[in-house]
């Protein structure tokens, strides 16, 4: 068995992704905003934004992700470079408008206008997560979704500029990577 295991390890280590190849606009995806409006990520073309994934009934890491996003949002505003946040639901069947409203209320996000929570269908979620190489899987019996915890900084072309863990990684480098708005020098 040793040669088999070795080749498996080599295969695993040789497949590192090239970050600059990941672009959220490489394939079209279709979403609904909280207001019920149909939207694609083309709507954010030409702008920098942060993108991540959550689901509202998530009891595991999602509360941490949401709290970290709130801190990121506040820190970016304080640094004079506020960023729109695109938060995509991993659980479109259950993340209905009332659930999204409850989610906002739970985290004090009722007036967080830079937050855009998008809900699509499973195929859209699979397409977008694959473009980003964001991994998730749903337990078909319990409904629990295991998922990566990554926040992406998307550039105006749709390419991943950088990313950070939404859990334990410090966010200074991420904030540093966000360019100051045109006309404003830091």
């Amino acid at each position: 068995m040793k040669p088999l295991l070795l080749s498996l390890c080599l295969a695993a280590s040789g497949a590192a992704a090239q970050p600059d190849a990941r672009n959220v606009r490489s394939l079209p995806t279709s979403w609904k905003t909280e207001a019920g409006k149909q939207v694609s990520l083309e709507a954010w073309k030409g702008r920098w934004y942060a993108l991540t994934f959550i689901y509202t009934s998530c009891a595991g890491s999602c509360p941490l992700t949401t709290k970290k996003l709130k801190r990121l949002d506040a820190a970016l505003e304080a640094a004079g470079k506020p960023l729109e946040l695109v938060v995509v639901s991993l659980d479109p069947a259950h993340d209905t408008p009332p659930m999204l409203e409850q989610y906002r209320a739970r985290y004090g996000l009722e007036n967080a206008k830079r937050w855009n929570i998008l809900v699509g269908d499973d195929a859209q979620v699979r397409t977008l997560t694959m473009l980003l190489e964001f991994k998730y899987t749903r337990n078909p019996e319990s409904g629990v979704i295991l998922h990566d915890n990554t926040v992406y900084l998307i550039d105006p072309k749709g390419t991943v500029h950088t990313s950070m863990s939404s859990l334990d990684q410090p966010m200074e480098a991420f904030i540093e990577a966000v360019p100051a708005p045109a006309g404003k020098k830091r």
Binding site: R126, M130, K135, T137, H147, T150
Partner: peptide, 11 residues
Amino acid sequence: TDDFNALFVSG
């Protein structure tokens, strides 16, 4: 498979 990468759930 459609969810071929769904095993690793951390970076």
